[in-house]
């Protein structure tokens, strides 16, 4: 099972639940997009708050197991992935 860490400002949709487990079909075939769709089925409104024009909301990146993945919605996850939606970082 992969684990999605629900951004705290979306936890109003999950009834305060911080992490949600999602079933991953076959190693390396499930995409972040499918995960978001799955969450949207379980918690209606989830996708609308995270997506913008068929992509992640500007200012939100997907981190899989501690690394930002630039493929965004197209990124593939593994059976034990930890998934976060947080802002990317640049710096000065």
């Amino acid at each position: 099972m992969a684990v999605v860490h629900v951004p705290s400002l979306l936890q109003d949709l999950t009834g305060g639940v911080e992490t949600v487990e999602v079933q991953v079909s076959g190693e390396g075939r499930t995409s972040v997009r499918q995960v978001v769709e799955e969450l949207d089925r379980r918690f209606p409104g989830f996708a609308a708050r995270l997506l913008w024009e068929d992509d992640l909301m500007p200012g939100i990146a997907v981190f899989i197991d501690g690394e930002q993945n630039r493929l965004g919605l197209r990124a593939k996850i593994a059976g034990d992935s930890q998934i976060f939606f947080i802002p990317p970082v640049v710096g000065g």
């Binding site: 951004p7 400002l9 936890q11 911080e18 609308a48 708050r49 913008w52 909301m57 939100i60 802002p87």
Partner: peptide, 22 residues
């Protein structure tokens, strides 16, 4: 703006961000 949700009233507070654990 708070993660995909926009409040209605005009304000100078342009963004609210939150992190929570336990």
């Amino acid at each position: 703006e708070t993660l995909g949700e926009k409040k209605k009233e005009s304000t100078n507070v342009c963004r609210h961000t939150q992190h929570k654990r336990g």
